[in-house]
Amino acid sequence: MPKWSMVIDLDKCVACQGCSIACRMENNTPAAPPDQAAMGREIRWNDVFPWPPNQAEPGEYPHVKTYYMTRPCQHCENPPCIKVCPVQATYKGEEGIVHQNYSRCIGCRFCTVACPYGVRYFNWYAPEWDPTMRQHLNPDRVESGEFVQEHTEGPIPRPKGVVEKCTFCVQRHDKALKKAAEEGRALRDSDYIPACVQTCTGKARYFGDMENPESTVSLLAQERRAFRLLEEVGTFPKVIYLREG
């Protein structure tokens, strides 16, 4: 059983936000109107923000340096979000992906509150697109679940009042799984990658199976530069960063 994992090399990351845009196109996250964005209600499954957050930039003018952090869902091994969900709308799949079921979510936002990384987003309104954008929505659908009967997740346009989050492009995972089944073989390390990894300008993102000791992510995770976000909260993320320098 693969354990899907991502490695992000911050040395290569140029903070172009390509991952954010690719994610938006792949997963049909709506753009928030300016007044809503000003309230902090925009949805960015893959966010790029100044690092460290809520602190002044290091250095004094003219020797100022700005750092950026790119952040998908961390798909923790010990996710605080699934423990607090009262209706099992979010759960960890067998391959380690933390799923989010839009058909089950009651919108209590306990998971958004419990996630220390802030990767979860709430649909304050039903999503809206302008007509051209609406014609070009990603048609992929993920409608069968692993544990539950009624299940929708991934790029399906969300109903109002539910929580959504990065799924490591679970729709691509589904396709890869079907293809592997047609060819009569098990899912391989290189069978699928999420949209953000595919698009990354600096080739800073790597994706693969952490269970396979030969995979790129396994080898990179053993580097001395490797670290995880907020290791002190005990969530054991499956997104591993490589420190700059």
């Binding site: 009262p86 209706v87 009651i106 539950v148 009042g161």
Partner: peptide, 15 residues
């Protein structure tokens, strides 16, 4: 609740 119509899910699908 974002979805008050699903309020009873707490009792049907409780975790």
């Amino acid at each position: 609740l974002g979805r008050p119509d699903r309020f009873l899910y707490v009792f049907f699908f409780g975790r």
